[in-house]
Design a protein around this nucleic acid. Structure first.
Lengths: 332, 332
DNA sequence: GTGAAAGCGCTAACAA
DNA sequence: TTGTTAGCGCTTTCAC
């Protein structure tokens, strides 16, 4: 029914090996033979079976991608970066959402290894000990994208979260603020808790400002919770906000304006993401640029090096960040 | 090196067939045998090779998903709907971006069929004749998600684009508007050109309002172009805007406000998407609810029916839409 | 309830 | 330059 390499070989009066060579662009085929085979392939509508090929060659040209949630624009951006580079290197992608659920992550890893992917790009706020153990034991290479593994056992691509947060808070401090609120994502996330929050504290300490726990509000990264956070903070009267992502920043802006305050005159806001939303907000958001697309792309590129057994010059890649100044802060 | 079904069989003193039965939860295994096999599987850390399984069984439990661009929130939402249902039915997803490029679409189809996916969910603004031909010839089932094939040859899941647009425009007409601008996405898209635009024209005609071509501005679905469109339209002074998606609607709102006009008092706006953004806009957007997640989920569900040779009661599924009234229109 | 054996469609030595 | 021949690791009859 379906036409196989054997059918082509028979019709072209050559061996399967020759057909295989033609299909795989092996140079050791006489042009005339190649042409003849190609003609038969065309006539029969032969399409190589990648599953059989994968079994024989032990390569599937497929990589697994495990991310929290593709419907979240940050992860979607990351995924696009991964996919573009994957396509460039002729890999396909098996994409799965983990919802940051450890069991799901573990199971997804297992499934993908079972499917014999050639490599895996993984993203999660927390890499549990068990997950780490499984990753280290994995027969196929894994790269962490925008995810921290403090043991540095697994390759990863990140930005300097601490430095970025420090610089953002310092900018607020330099603008004269004393009461700087921090609307932060879940503290279960390593990056939030160990990097951003620490940077916030140290930037304040370095400026001689006392740390006030009341100024920290943990949110689930959503617009609604950010709005609520601002309402909760009203009694404290913060004059500046450092906010963990663009969606929450828009919530902050709206809530602050509801209080009758003007941005940036009365209150300044710095976001941390710099997605398309940052320019769609009014006022437009000053934001730490968190290059998700690039992190995805570089992660995938790094993975290709592992898959090809290329030399790895740097296992823990740190990409540059910058602060994009727009209208939600007073700039020079 | 890697442990195979054969190793397990040897260690457990049973045949490969028995191990296979255990792994596949076949009931024809004595409990004692099952237990023994399971123990060996555990000890050896055996993980079934899905590629070998796929070759032998001719099923990969993988479906292909071809969408324009995962970094666009509409398609990301769709993808999440697809993935959730796929997971429910134990399928994995190979996700690829086509950027609506016909050659890429053709080539992706080919690649996925080569990878022996069990089914494909496809989305694109235009399904060319050649693409259609390939789809009809495809040995594996294909479902179109949010995409029109007027020949109805391929299964599909959509909403009533015409009805939704008609109702939106009628609402504007009923609110007394005569100069209703239509900020529409690319007219290369079937849905825009053959459904939405037609609905717009007929809703006006039915209200006895002359069609004015100048009120139609074709955009690339982006915030920036929508803003420009409003500026271009300034001389015509539209009093209402029907806009093809939320991002553009926000552009329209900002541009209208720059003209010193108030929404909805001076100008009304109806969007067409109803994403998270609709609630994050100020004023919040009245919008036709285009249920992308559901379209993805239903498409995938429909695909499972084809893959299982279940009875298909409806090949062309039409999902309900509704209009979500918020602040960008005057409501009763 | 269990086993033997024939493939699934291809790649990759190794020969020729 | 081309062909022969083992597998790759599993499922699936068909016997027993």
């Amino acid at each position: 029914m379906t036409v196989t390499i054997y059918d082509v070989a028979r019709e072209a009066n050559v061996s399967m090996a020759t057909v295989s060579r033609v299909v795989n662009a092996n140079q050791n085929v006489k042009p005339a033979t190649r042409k003849k085979v190609l003609k038969v392939i065309e006539e029969l509508g032969y399409r190589p079976n990648a599953v059989a090929r994968g079994l024989a060659s032990k390569k599937t040209t497929t990589v697994g991608v495990i991310i929290p949630d593709i419907s979240n624009s940050m992860y979607a951006e990351l995924a696009r970066g991964i996919e573009d580079i994957a396509t460039m290197y002729r890999y396909n992608i098996i994409l799965s959402n983990s919802d940051q659920n450890e069991n799901k992550e573990l199971q997804l890893l297992e499934t993908m290894l079972g499917k014999q992917v050639d490599g895996i790009v993984f993203m999660s706020d927390v890499i549990s000990a068990e997950l780490l153990k499984e990753m280290e034991r994995s027969p196929t290479p894994i790269v962490l994208a925008g995810s921290i593994d403090e043991s540095a056992a697994i390759a990863s691509v990140n930005i300097d979260y601490y430095g970025a947060a420090y610089e953002a808070v310092k900018k607020l401090v330099d603008n004269g603020h004393q009461k700087i609120a921090f609307i932060i994502g879940p503290l279960t996330s390593m990056i939030n808790k160990e990097y951003k929050l620490k940077a916030y504290k140290e930037a304040l300490a370095d400026a001689g400002i006392d740390y006030d726990e009341k100024l920290i509000v943990e949110c689930n990264n959503s617009y609604d919770e950010a709005m609520e956070a601002v309402q909760t903070l009203a009694p404290v009267e913060p004059t500046a906000y450092f906010v963990s992502n663009d969606e929450m920043s828009i919530g902050v802006i709206h809530a602050v304006e509801e209080q009758g305050k003007k941005i940036p005159m009365d209150v300044e806001v710095i976001s941390y993401e710099n997605s398309k939303l940052a320019r769609m907000a009014r006022p437009m958001l000053t934001s730490v640029a968190f290059p998700l697309y690039d992190i995805g792309a570089v992660s995938m590129r790094l993975l290709t090096k592992y898959m090809n057994n290329e030399e790895i010059e740097e296992k823990q890649v740190i990409l540059p960040y910058r602060i994009e100044e727009r209208e939600s802060t007073k700039n020079d």
